[in-house]
Computed example of a mutant assay.
Amino acid sequence: MFSEFPTLLGTGLVLLGIFYLGFLSLKINFPSVILYILFGVMIGDWLSDNKLLHFASEIGIVLLFFILGLEFSISRLGSIAKKVWPAGLLDVFLCLGMSMLISVGFGLDLFSSFVIGSITYATSSSITAKLLDDRSRMANTETEYILAILIFEDLIAPILIAIIIGINVSGSFQMTDVLLIAGKIVTLVAVAIFLGKVTLKYADTLLDKIADEDFKIALLIGVAISFGGLALYLGLSEVLGAFLAGMMLAEIGRIERVEHTVIPVRDLMLPTFFVYFGTTIEFGNGLPLPVLLASLIVWSLISKVLVGIIGGRWYGLSKKVSLRAGLSLCARGEFSVVIASVATGTLKIFGGIYVIIIAFIGMLLFEQAPKITNKFYPKKTKNKNLRVPGS
């Protein structure tokens, strides 16, 4: 068993497994992310609560969103925020509120329904961002909208987690707790804007002076991890902190130098996140609430597609691009796992089974999104065989 192995040997075997699965995904043209998650599920009994794997996964997800943040300067993020909030509220209503109503309709109490609604709410930021990168869709028209929805959800999800933990611990939750979390988010964003506009404007010159890549790696990854860690310290998501760190460095210009240094480390560490994600999923004994589970899986897919179709149009996207965005938002992941982990009993098992099923279906829909949208909105082709009148 891995638990009896030296930590170094266990780590090496996991990395070799990641290499093989990555190579296999290329051969069979199957999403590597799904294989990594299934690998984690298989080895979960041996590597559950593995601190080294958890630490590596944290660095991987932080660097992923740090790189994403580099694409969004402060001014660009501000313009996006003005455009995305109506779609973000629609997302909360459809994916959280309606899932709660479905759960209440199946006889669950209000708090259990809120927990299930929270589990079904947020799209997986890590899975979606990884697939956008792997499938070379970062430059697509819908990508800005998708990332805007992900960041909006990253602001809401910590509030949901805090409410659930507060009720679990004390049996109640005060409005002041929500205001406290909101204040932390505003403070973190304000610090990022200040550093980006004032302090880090000198980083451009500093990077030019550093010839040794080792020092650059320490500086840039140190900034990403520190800000992600600061967000965790404040009780927020490390994903949000890492994104804001990237946004800060986007202000220095010539971001390709930063990407050149950080991307190789990200590519090494990121697969460990999906493996660790798999190790956290517990199936338990049997399938709890099967009819409710099936109903929520169907509604989870429909609701995210509606967020894409309706919210995308509000955002200014075409009908075709909006549909492609909705089909790309269906996978649930890390926040659902975190919320399920603070639940108890049947709800925890229910959450784990829900996540693995919806993550799998969501990734398949992401893969097929361009083909599906082309069927609904086929490309207009010019008739090359036009005949001259009278000929």
Rank of each mutant, 00 (worst) to 15 (best):
273 F>K: 08
310 I>F: 10
267 D>A: 05
323 L>M: 14
270 L>R: 07
311 G>I: 03
310 I>H: 10
291 V>W: 03
280 T>G: 14
336 S>R: 07
280 T>L: 11
259 E>P: 05
270 L>P: 03
337 V>E: 14
269 M>Q: 04
258 V>T: 08
329 L>G: 09
320 K>N: 14
325 A>S: 14
309 I>Q: 00
294 A>P: 06
339 I>A: 15
309 I>M: 00
315 Y>D: 07
329 L>D: 08
274 F>K: 09
261 T>A: 04
340 A>S: 15
292 L>M: 10
336 S>K: 02
283 F>N: 09
287 L>V: 09
343 A>P: 01
286 G>I: 01
305 V>D: 08
300 S>W: 05
302 I>A: 10
308 G>P: 01
302 I>E: 11
297 I>S: 12
324 R>H: 02
269 M>H: 15
318 S>Y: 14
320 K>P: 01
321 V>M: 03
262 V>E: 02
257 R>M: 11
266 R>Y: 12
311 G>R: 00
334 E>T: 04
340 A>E: 15
317 L>H: 03
284 G>C: 13
313 R>S: 02
287 L>D: 10
261 T>I: 12
312 G>Q: 00
305 V>C: 01
324 R>A: 11
331 A>D: 09
270 L>I: 07
288 P>Q: 04
310 I>P: 10
304 K>S: 05
291 V>L: 04
276 Y>F: 10
326 G>W: 01
288 P>H: 01
279 T>K: 14
298 V>Q: 10
287 L>C: 00
276 Y>R: 12
274 F>H: 10
262 V>L: 01
297 I>R: 00
302 I>C: 02
274 F>V: 04
307 V>P: 03
319 K>E: 11
328 S>I: 06
338 V>P: 08
332 R>L: 14
298 V>F: 11
266 R>M: 14
274 F>A: 15
286 G>L: 06
276 Y>I: 05
304 K>L: 03
266 R>A: 13
318 S>F: 00
265 V>Q: 05
333 G>Q: 14
309 I>D: 03
310 I>Q: 13
323 L>F: 07
257 R>A: 01
305 V>M: 15
309 I>A: 04
267 D>L: 00
310 I>M: 08
287 L>F: 02
285 N>E: 11
293 L>R: 11
276 Y>T: 10
264 P>Y: 00
328 S>W: 12
340 A>H: 06
263 I>G: 03
294 A>F: 08
306 L>W: 00
269 M>A: 07
326 G>V: 08
272 T>Y: 14
337 V>C: 09
275 V>R: 07
286 G>S: 05
